[in-house]
Amino acid sequence: MSDQARYTVGKGTLLLIEGDITRDDADAIVNAANSALAGGGGVDGAIHRAAGPMLPAACRAIIAEIGRLPAGGAVITPGFDLPARHIIHTVGPIWHGGNSGEPEKLRSAYTQSLARAVENSLSSISFPAVSTGVYGFPVEKAAPIALKAMAEALTAGSIREVRVYLHGKHAFDLWRLAADALFGEITR
């Protein structure tokens, strides 16, 4: 069984889960996308594969309308073949040492994703650990940024539940430490 940690934040719930985001049934899952929304490796590729053949056309239509999606931006598509009804695509920053606006762009990736959920009257949203894979953002720096953005949405009451899917026990443990520091003991 995978690890889980549950926190009460405002009137909402934050869950950390070691597992596969493509199996999640939240109103929306977040895709850690590239700026072309073209699919790729990691969670992006897994979401594209699981969503099925209609997702690429939906992504191409968005790019044709807006151009490339900048780091920190977020757009929404249907979930197609996923259990989740929607996919919110966000582009996290590539880590260049932290002095090139990476923390602000990462925060924006989370806040813009949450804003797309609120705009579409969604109450539950699931995130991967945006930018902490191939983009190289250090997990111990990314987790507090992400968790604070999530806590603001949960406290505002616009989102009922936020889930964070983490790949591997090490990532889960680092996020749990950050969440414990921000929210106190986990609730069961």
Rank of each mutant, 00 (worst) to 15 (best):
D180R: 14
I145Y: 03
H89Q: 06
T22S: 05
A61F: 05
M1C: 07
Y135Q: 13
S35Q: 15
A51I: 04
F137I: 05
G19C: 05
I62A: 02
T90C: 09
T187W: 04
A50L: 07
G133T: 10
P78L: 15
A142L: 05
H170W: 07
S126K: 03
M150T: 08
G67S: 05
M150L: 09
H96T: 12
Y165N: 00
A171Q: 12
W175R: 01
W175P: 14
T132R: 12
F172G: 03
V9E: 04
S131Q: 13
A115P: 02
L82V: 07
A51R: 04
Q4K: 15
A143N: 11
V130N: 06
H86G: 02
T13N: 11
A51V: 05
A117C: 03
R68E: 15
D3Q: 14
F137Q: 07
L69I: 12
M150Y: 14
V134K: 09
I17K: 13
I88C: 04
L69C: 11
Q4N: 12
A57Y: 09
F172N: 01
R68A: 14
T155H: 00
Y7K: 11
L16M: 09
Y110A: 01
S158N: 14
G168R: 01
A58V: 11
A36S: 15
D81Q: 12
R160A: 15
N31Q: 06
M54D: 15
R160W: 00
L37V: 10
K141C: 00
A84V: 14
A26V: 10
A143V: 13
S113V: 03
A33P: 07
T8E: 15
P53S: 15
A117L: 03
A142T: 00
R23S: 13
H86K: 09
A109E: 01
R49W: 00
H48P: 05
D173M: 10
H89Y: 04
S123M: 13
G45C: 06
L16A: 09
A74G: 04
G10F: 02
L37H: 06
M1Y: 08
A74E: 06
G133H: 06
Y7S: 04
V75I: 06
I94G: 00
A153E: 09
I94M: 13
Y135D: 14
G168T: 01
A57N: 10
V164N: 02
A117H: 04
T8R: 15
E104V: 08
P70T: 10
G168Q: 02
V134W: 00
V91W: 07
M1S: 13
L37Y: 03
I29Y: 01
